[in-house]
């Protein structure tokens, strides 16, 4: 029970997210209308991804500091779950953008294709994709762990220009860019009112905990596999 409390917490928080996310009152906004509720799902995927990538980055640093196969397994599996959440965030964003940017705002395909937020997020996810290609190309385990730990630090550093800085500097349809007249997406006081926060913050914690749970299962399986292979 002592080890399980955060899993139960994630169930409670996500049940609350689904109930509150669909049933609570939300601000009435043009273009977005009822789709503002996607904030509790689409945006939380990216928050979860970012937190898991930070954890993965820390384990890569730990590996370089003290090389042990355990740190490498932790780093790679947190990165894998982070990528999974990132892909889900991207796909949900595609659906959302289709109805708010294309249908309601009549944006052209050219405007969508040069959307800096989409390009930046795609670059960031592809860099992490290369991390797994790199890992798969080594036969020597120590070399694999060391090179991929260094690469993971690079991939984490590339997240900042590609998804945080550049989309905020150039015009974009996505909230958080100069063209959309709002600052920090989802956390700006002009963008999001207290009714949204009431569900939004628990949702971030809930989705992140589910990501950690899935990662922990993957890590435990791989540790077992290592143990059996070594015996």
């Amino acid at each position: 029970m002592r080890k399980y409390w955060w899993k139960i917490l994630s169930i409670i928080l996500l049940t609350y997210t689904f109930l509150g996310g669909f049933l609570f009152d939300v601000p009435r906004l043009f273009i977005l209308n009822e789709t503002i509720r996607n904030l509790y799902f689409h945006v939380c995927m990216w928050f979860g991804m970012m937190i898991l990538f930070i954890v993965s980055f820390i384990y890569s640093l730990k590996y370089l500091n003290k090389p042990s196969i355990k740190n490498d397994i932790y780093a790679s599996n947190f990165a894998a779950t982070g990528c999974f959440l990132g892909v889900l965030g991207y796909l949900t964003g595609v659906i959302w953008a289709n109805y708010t940017w294309v249908t309601d705002q009549q944006q052209s395909l050219a405007a969508i294709l040069k959307e800096p937020k989409l390009i930046g997020a795609a670059i960031a996810l592809l860099i992490y994709g290369a991390y797994f290609v790199l890992r798969g190309s080594f036969s020597d385990n120590d070399k694999k762990a060391r090179v991929s730990a260094v690469y993971n630090i690079f991939a984490f550093a590339m997240l900042f220009p590609s998804i945080w800085i550049i989309p905020r500097m150039v015009g974009s349809l996505h909230p958080g860019a100069p063209g959309s007249e709002s600052g920090n997406p989802a956390l700006n006081y002009n963008d999001i009112d207290s009714r949204l926060r009431l569900v939004f913050y628990p949702a971030i914690i809930g989705w992140t905990l589910v990501g950690v749970w899935i990662s922990s299962l993957r890590i435990r399986l791989q540790l077992l596999r290592e143990k059996i292979l070594n015996n």
Binding site: K7, V210, W213, I214, L217, R220, L221, L224
Partner: peptide
């Protein structure tokens, strides 16, 4: 997830 957790 719980069933997987227990199996592991």
């Amino acid at each position: 997830l719980f069933i997987l957790d227990r199996k592991i």
